[in-house]
Structures are given as structure tokens and as C-alpha cells.
Amino acid sequence: MKAKLKRIRSDWILYLMLLPGITYFIIFHVIPIINMKLAFEDYRIIGENTWAGLKHFQVLFSSPAFMDVLQNTIIISTMKIIFIFPIPIILSLLISEVRSGPFRKYVQSVSYLPHFLSWVVIAGIWISFLSPDGGFNIIRNFFQLPSLDFMTSKDHIRWVLVFSEMWRSAGWDSILYIAAIMKISPHLYEAAQLDGASTFQQMRHITLPALATTVVTVFILNLGFFMNAGFDQVFNLMNDSVISKIDILDTYVYRIGLLNGEYSYATAASLFKGAIGLVLILGTHFLSKRLTGKGVW
């Protein structure tokens, strides 16, 4: 004990160096988490908040609006996993078939680019490209299909979310898979070529099996963020015509809490989302550790 105290005293400079970072985390991270007890209280502008128990949660779970946003969140996240998740894998397989050189550099540089654009910018680009006389409708007209106003179409807006997310992230997300493919020994391919294996046979029997671990890890990690469903994206692509189809938990919290000022009720919704998210992240972390030896942290 005495030795410990002595060490603490002689290492004072280390604690001093840690102080700014830890202080930051406590003020801007720990305090707002503790303050989420607001979900069990009634917010008062003046004076202490009053205890409300589970009142806000009861209102929440009996609210049809909340059930709708919960359903939207689950549908949108599921659609994204099914339709977006395989794309970077396919892309990495294709890119790996291209020998290093200008074309490969070009494809990689171009496909990574949208990842660095903000959702405000991407919304601007997509609203223009999907407008009734925008590029996508010109392609549709070429195939004798009528022009559609996608941004205000209830039937299409979820697909707009899926494809704009794909446009933004598929290229960048392929990096991990490309890195895994680059680690495969070239001897395997040489041997396969000697045996007369075609490009597609090599992909199926060498590359894909080598990618399995990475695929499982990324899939599991994605599940951990299932309840997010892409707030920034929805926030910027939403409009009054389609709100019923794409209003998700986070946009609901924003509207009810920050626009309407129902702080306690919105915090209850946040806390519910956070609790499910926590279970998912912890669950996927331990599942991933078990299956692949790699966790979230």
C-alpha cells in the first residue's frame, strides 16, 4: 500500500497529463449519460425535476407513433443489411481481379470518394439526380419506363435510403476485404492456374473461403449498430410526403425532444434505444470474440 502511494506520488506528471482527457470524458460523456435518468423524471425548467417513475415508458409503449418509428427502424436496418452488406464483398472480389495499375487506382479512388462527403452534400446530389428530370429518370426513360418523383414517393423512399447508403459506403467498406484478399498467398493462385482453374473458380475456391472470417466479423459488428438505421441520412432525405415511411427512432427523438421540448419523454425513447443497442453491442462483441477471436474492442 505504501509502495503504491509512493508510485502515485512519483508519477504525478502522468496523472496531470491524463487530467484533460479524463475531465473531458466526465463532463461531456459521463454526465449526459447519468442525466438520462431524466427518462424517469418530469423535466422542470426552474427547480429540481420531479420523480415520474415509469410514466414516460408507459406512454411510449402505448403510443402508435412510437411503434411506427420502431417498425420503420427495424425494416430499414434489415433492408440495409440484406441489400448493402454483400456489395463491398463483391466489389472487393472484382477489384482484386484487376492488376495494380492506373485502372485499379482509378476505380478505388473514385469508389472511396463518397464516404468523405457529408450527408447534407449527398442529399443535395441525390435530390438532384433523382428529380423528375434528373439523371436516373433519363435512364428509366431510355428503358421505356415513366419518370417518377422518388423523393416524395412513399413506395420508393426506403429504396432511396438503401441505394444512397450503398453509393456512399460500398467502395470504402470494400477496403477491409481487399486488405484480407491481399494477404492470401499468391502461390495458391499459381497452383490453381497450373491446374487450369478459371478466374471464377479461383474466386470461389480460394478467395471467398479466405474472406470468411472478415465477412463474419463485419456482419456481427454491423448488427451492433442495428438500432441506428442511419440518422444523418434519414434526417437529410426526409420530407413531409414520406415521413411516415422513414421516420426512425433517432429522428423521432429529435423531433419530440428538441423541436417539441418534451425532454423527458424523448429521453425515455433514447434510453430504450440505447438499452437495445447496448445488449446488441455486448452480445455481438462476445459472439464475435467466440467465433473469430476479434471483438468490438
Binding site: 463532463i27 449526459p32 449519460i33 425532454y263 433514447s270
Partner: peptide, 22 residues
């Protein structure tokens, strides 16, 4: 203790409401 604290920071996300109020 600090390392565990950081992992906890990573796992627990504050609500945008309480961040705003802070």
C-alpha cells in the same frame, strides 16, 4: 481502471437530449 472506463465510454452513448441540455 482507465482502460475499462474508455471501453465503457465506447459502449454507452449519451442521448442527444441530455447532451443538448448539458
Amino acid at each position: 481502471f482507465v482502460l475499462i472506463f474508455l471501453i465503457a465510454i465506447m459502449v454507452f452513448e449519451p442521448s442527444m437530449i441530455t447532451e443538448y441540455l448539458l
